[in-house]
């Protein structure tokens, strides 16, 4: 009998073990739900599975009586649009400032303290300021995402840019490169896969800020819907929405990771 630390599961066992906790959670939920519903058939806290099916059907496949929209899709579209715009703008700003700060000492001395200071401001604390300045429209919600994740991404990319070996920067110069060419041919391509991992890391906070902003002021969106139906204790809508958001987050992360491995094979070698 080998020691526990040396025993490794095979492929099939590995899958089975991984699925087990999910299965147990499902069973625990169903048992608890049955128990509560047996006591009170109108219980709203732990709805039975068929109420989820009905709720999903109602939200996703029947037009809303009030607006005629398919709510789940309209909400998803609205949220993904905000998330996409917010993250894209953040990524762009982060690359530009990160490269500037990371590569050019004069720029770094000028802006690095500012970025550090800004990154310490809690974004949620200035949410009211955003609503005051940008109104309650799309801009404020997108701005919250941008303000929430950009400073972190800048600092990350700045650090990654500084980690480019000095040998390579000297090498570029001995090949005749000027500063701009060092950026376009060395720093920029080297940072692209690192930008993708920064985006992947920021997506969690980005969702957080998105849902927070939608909860406070929106007329559609996944976060808005969850907080709206909360008033009716509509767990049969909230829980599928949460699962849906989680699934979207997973898919986005998975696609980014795959894209990075396909597009930047050199980056994913050597233990990155």
């Amino acid at each position: 009998m080998k020691k526990l630390i040396n025993r490794r599961p095979g492929n099939a066992l590995s899958w089975a073990l991984g699925l087990l906790p999910f299965l147990l959670l499902m069973i625990a939920y169903m048992v608890a739900s049955d128990a509560r519903l047996a006591e009170n058939p109108n219980d709203k806290l732990l709805p039975a599975l068929d109420s989820f099916v009905q709720a999903i059907d109602r939200m996703a496949f029947e037009p809303s009586k009030r607006s005629g929209e398919y709510l789940l899709w309209a909400d998803t579209l609205a949220s993904l649009q905000r998330l996409g715009i917010g993250v894209a703008i953040s990524a762009l700003v982060a690359v530009v400032v990160g490269i500037g700060n990371g590569t050019i000492p004069l720029v770094r001395s000028t802006f690095s303290p500012l970025v550090t200071g800004l990154s310490l401001v809690p974004p949620m604390a200035i949410l009211p300021v955003l609503f005051i300045i940008f109104g309650l429209g799309e801009l404020a919600k997108v701005m919250l995402i941008i303000i929430g994740i950009t400073p972190f991404m800048i600092r990350d990319l700045q650090q990654r840019a500084r980690e480019i070996p000095a040998e390579q920067i000297i090498k570029m110069q001995t090949l005749g490169a000027n500063t701009w060419q060092i950026i376009t041919r060395l720093v920029w391509p080297q940072l692209m896969p690192r930008l993708i991992s920064a985006v992947r890391l920021s997506l969690g906070p980005a969702w957080l800020f998105l849902i927070a902003a939608e909860a406070i002021a929106a007329t559609e969106g996944l976060g808005y819907r969850i907080f709206l139906v909360r008033r009716y204790l509509a767990m049969d809508v909230i829980l599928p929405y949460v699962v849906w958001i989680t699934f979207l987050a997973f898919v986005i992360d998975f696609l980014l990771s795959r894209y990075s491995q396909w597009r930047y094979p050199w980056f994913h070698q050597k233990g990155h």
Binding site: P165, Q168, K171, M172, Q173, T174, G176, L186, F267
Partner: peptide
Amino acid sequence: AEPDASRGIVFQRYSVLNH
């Protein structure tokens, strides 16, 4: 006073661009 194309260099490591 700065590296340029008049001098070529090969270091022990990181001499080529890995991308």
